[in-house]
Computed example of a mutant assay.
Amino acid sequence: MGILRRSSAVAALVLAGALAVPLSLSVPDTAQGAAPERAGAVQGATGLRAADPSVLRVGSTYTAVQSADGGIVVRQASSLDGLASAPAKKVWSDTGGLGGVWAPEIVRDGGRYYIYFAAERAGARRMYVISSASPDSGYSAAKKLALPDDKWAIDGTLFTFQGRRWFVWSGWAGDTNVEQNLYIARMSDPTTPTGGRSIISQPREGWERVVGNPYINEAPEAIKDPNGQLHIVYSANGSWSDQYCLADLRLRAGGDPTYVWDWYKSNGCLFGSHRETMMTGWDPTLYVDGPGHHSFVLLDGDIGTSPPAGQKFPSMFHAVPKGTPYSWENRHWYSGSFVWWGDTTYKRANVPGAETDTGWSLKFFE
């Protein structure tokens, strides 16, 4: 596939009928330039030193999943901020010698809970799934997902769009660590892929190639905009760098999720800490460096419950406090929010299909 070249897009217009929100991405609910609400604290910090948050809400309970102690733990609380102090209940241990456990994602489908995670042994990283009728107990033994082509994979998650189940993940095209692409495949049920894998994004833009070896698109999360169009928001640049950031893929209206040229990429980071890589009209963060690997905190984890225009909605992400050396060990979970941002044009060139697509984008708040 050729290089996906896209130029900068003009900043989005204010949401029709939206609540008043700051034009700066980085100021949550205070005037631009105001101090954080908690003196000496990083805005939205949960106190949980960890990475790769995956959170959903069922009723009034927030459930988060995390890899820890050679297995997977679940935390439950009545608020996002309460997750940090909630007890971590271990729901799965690697008794089968699968290897290192990475980036679990919790999903609810048909009233049952599924946790997808990557495990690696001898450099071979593959996706696995466990399931239970309860979010914090009774999980099954791990089952390897038979993803098409059986290549290195991480950050996989399930969602339903237009009545069909889909699985999206980050992985390699072949057997060497050149770059991590985003792939999508159909699912006949929550544990059974069907058909082939289709590439939907490669890290080929300058702003997502600031840090490489390999170049990375990872941590995809699905959400549906107010027009009913599918978005995959993902993390770009290496997670070991403060250039880590969030970007967006928007499926054109009526588009085929398996056809790469029906996807339009944001023309820069939508949530990041370096102005030079931000999409025009989007500002860098004030309080944290390298925000990424986020979770849209949706009811039941269902993109059918995606928020309408005009409402701030909760999210979680990991980042490092500004002024702290950027390292994996210094990452924390943060609670934040996002809103839909209308009339946003994504541009591209030298590829099949229309060069521009205008629709909803997102703005994220610390």
Rank of each mutant, 00 (worst) to 15 (best):
G33P: 06
P28A: 08
T46Q: 00
G82P: 05
G47E: 04
T61K: 04
K90H: 05
K89G: 05
G17M: 13
G44H: 01
P28Y: 07
A64H: 03
A50V: 05
V21E: 12
L25S: 14
S79A: 12
V27Q: 03
G59D: 07
K89P: 05
R57F: 01
G47T: 03
A20M: 13
V55T: 00
G44V: 00
S79H: 11
A41V: 12
Q32H: 11
R38T: 15
V65S: 01
V21G: 08
V73K: 04
Q66Y: 10
W92I: 02
A86L: 10
A84K: 05
S67L: 03
T63L: 08
S93H: 09
A50D: 09
V74I: 15
A84E: 09
Q43F: 07
A84T: 08
A45C: 10
A51P: 06
A68K: 08
S26K: 01
I72P: 01
A39C: 12
A64M: 15
P87H: 01
P53L: 06
T46H: 00
A77Y: 06
L83D: 04
V27N: 03
A35M: 14
G40A: 09
G40C: 12
V65R: 00
V58Q: 03
A88K: 05
D29M: 12
A86Q: 09
